[in-house]
């Protein structure tokens, strides 16, 4: 069942740059994990922030709808939006160090959501915060309630963030690169924590990432974004076996292969064009190894893939995995 659906979302920087994100449509289903992947500057984070209305004041949603559980979050009242933020939808940010208030104990920060949404008193909420700290695997939880964020490691801080995000038994967690700022070993721990929570609590997760390993490990559905567009929407197996957009295929090819020491890293030449400087036709065209003059210079189709050649069966891409 669809829990969150983003329809035709378009985000502008008024005046200078229209179309930071353009016509983005995807769904997150109940209890499933959807990954939002792409290079930096493709609009992944903007899209995830737009869901909860957290965009910086300088950018604006100019079209589209974000429907969570039947409510359009873009048009509902601020009051209604506040009820959804931290209630049925939790959010985890990239930098745990700066996502926690340095002047507040972690216990109070976890308890805050429950006090705001469920009207619990400080004592009750703190008792619950202790359970949550236990749940996210922080040892000595009762003592840790009184700790300040700077007294914890990055991994612990991210666990605290997750505890705060799940404080009110949400149905959806939006995680914006939750492991990017952490050590590799800690990344694995945080991801397995997220997976356990997803399974145990029946959470849906919208995971913004640029780590394909995380996608393979953790996600069910994948949305590949490029230059403010969705390049491809697919299932995780299809992405790795049968990518349907040259950009996805190029991303897969750029993953370093274990066991091949001293081989050259494959890269995608060039960089993501900035909004306002998009090429006509296919936005990935100038960097694409399969660029063909007339077809790719025309506007590309919507739907599962935004590559006209793949859609028409003209181009067959090779996946990273075979079988």
């Amino acid at each position: 069942m669809t829990l969150l659906s983003v329809e035709g979302l378009t985000i502008d920087l008024p005046g200078t740059q229209p179309g930071l994100v353009e016509d983005v449509t995807f769904e997150v289903n109940e209890g499933r994990c959807t990954a939002l992947i792409g290079e930096s500057g493709c609009g992944k984070s903007l899209t995830s922030l737009a869901v909860l209305g957290l965009l910086p004041p300088s950018v604006r949603v100019s079209a589209g709808a974000v429907v969570f559980d039947g409510v359009d979050l873009l048009t509902c009242s601020p009051r209604q939006l506040r009820k959804i933020r931290g209630g049925p939808v939790g959010m985890v940010f990239q930098e745990p160090m700066s996502s926690l208030n340095p002047s507040m104990t972690v216990g109070d920060q976890i308890a805050e959501a429950r006090r705001l949404h469920l009207g619990e008193g400080r004592k009750v909420a703190l008792a619950r915060a202790k359970d949550l700290l236990d749940r996210v695997g922080i040892p000595n939880a009762a003592r840790r309630l009184a700790a300040y964020p700077h007294e914890m490691s990055g991994g612990m801080q991210q666990r605290v963030m997750i505890a705060a995000a799940i404080a009110c038994d949400p149905r959806l967690i939006i995680a914006d690169e939750p492991t990017t700022a952490l050590d590799v070993t800690i990344q694995a721990e945080i991801l397995s924590l997220l997976r356990d929570l997803q399974r145990d609590l029946g959470l849906a997760v919208l995971l913004v990432t640029h780590d394909l390993g995380v996608v393979a490990d953790f996600c069910d559905d994948v949305v590949v974004m490029y230059a403010g567009h969705i390049a491809e929407r697919t299932g995780v197996d299809d992405l790795f076996y049968r990518p349907a957009h040259p950009y996805s295929a190029a991303l897969l090819a750029a993953v370093p292969q274990a066991g091949q020491s001293r081989s050259r890293l494959t890269v995608i030449p060039g960089r993501v064009p900035t909004a306002g400087a998009f090429p006509p036709g296919c936005r990935f065209g100038p960097r694409c190894a399969h660029f063909t003059a007339p077809e790719c210079a025309r506007p590309q189709p919507h739907g599962r893939t935004r590559c006209g050649r793949v859609a028409s069966g003209d181009l067959v891409l090779e996946g990273a995995l075979h079988g």
């Binding site: 957290l54 506040r82 705060a164």
Partner: peptide
């Protein structure tokens, strides 16, 4: 500018 302000808003703080 700090993320914790966003995360406060994200848990529904008015």
């Amino acid at each position: 500018e700090e993320t914790f302000v966003d995360s406060a808003v994200a848990i529904g703080s008015p």
